[in-house]
């Protein structure tokens, strides 16, 4: 593909027509924790705490590096949490404290899930 330089202000997530290699054919099954993130997003949106537009806004603002280095649902859990902080449903401090409690339960996902 011939590429013209992207204009100033072009955002990383706006990918249509940008340079890219072959379409990858890898595929993974979703883990339980990923399905839980998905469920939390749908439930919180359905209950009116934030919108899918807000989910996308935070994902976009996380930047290209997050897209390249974090998995899909890793980015989602950050965005869902950020939106719920902005909506006043949880506070940063509550989330941070709870994460420490979770980590203290054990080194695996199974052990850390109460």
């Amino acid at each position: 593909m011939t590429q013209t330089p992207l204009p100033p202000g072009h955002r990383w997530h706006d990918m249509g027509g940008t340079a890219a290699g072959p379409v990858p054919d890898d595929q993974h099954d979703f883990a339980l924790w990923e399905k839980r993130v998905d469920a939390l997003m749908v439930l919180c949106a359905t209950k009116g705490h934030f919108t899918v537009d807000g989910l996308r806004r935070v994902l976009e603002d996380m930047g290209a590096e997050a897209f390249e280095t974090m998995t899909y649902y890793e980015r989602w859990i950050v965005s869902v949490s950020q939106n719920l902080i902005e909506a006043g449903v949880i506070t940063q401090s509550e989330l941070a404290d709870k994460m420490q409690q979770v980590a203290a339960r054990g080194p695996t996902y199974g052990e850390a899930t109460a």
């Binding site: 919180c44 649902y73 449903v89 989330l95 980590a103 080194p107 850390a112």
Partner: peptide, 29 residues
């Protein structure tokens, strides 16, 4: 290791567990 349950806990999984428990504690879900 069993898939899903016994892999080492990641920072982001910690966040999922924590957020889920907070939302249940608060009666959101």
């Amino acid at each position: 290791y069993r898939k899903d349950q016994d892999a080492p806990l990641t920072h982001w999984q910690q966040m999922e567990i924590a957020l889920r428990e907070l939302l249940i504690d608060k009666g959101v879900t």
